[in-house]
Amino acid sequence: MSEKLAIIIASEEYEKSHVASMIASVAAVSGVDVSIFVTMNAVYNFLKENVEKKNFTGGKLYEQIKEKKAAMFYELFDSAKMLGGLKIYVCSMVMDILKIEKDDLIDIVDDHLGLAAFLGIMEGAETITF
């Protein structure tokens, strides 16, 4: 595996953010440099308002994750950030359209980026899209 991993999360489906956070965590603690790009409907999952109310769009597995009180995707991202190299970027275009500021996003978000910048990060990186 390459030592750089880029993950694009575009879907609002909870399970997709969750699996992204699992892969990102294990990669980050294995010495892989991980960058996450959150775009399109996935941005809703990173809004403070929705995280506080656990207002997510999910399926059967999401219901089980809640019921079993498993760590949520943002908690997995948070511990990965403490233990390894992981950066989370939110798409500037979506922030513009939704009129949201960095303060509206949960604290694990590092910055907002445009596509040219994220394409630069993706260069030479293994890329997975959710």
């Binding site: 699992m22 965590s25 294990v26 603690v29 079993k68 498993a70 760590a71 997995l76 511990s79 990965a80 233990l83």
Partner: peptide, 16 residues
């Protein structure tokens, strides 16, 4: 009581 990758993450904290 923790689910994947919880146990691995717990181990990593201690290895550090």
């Amino acid at each position: 009581g923790t689910y994947c990758p919880g146990p691995l993450m717990e181990l990593i904290k201690e290895v550090r």
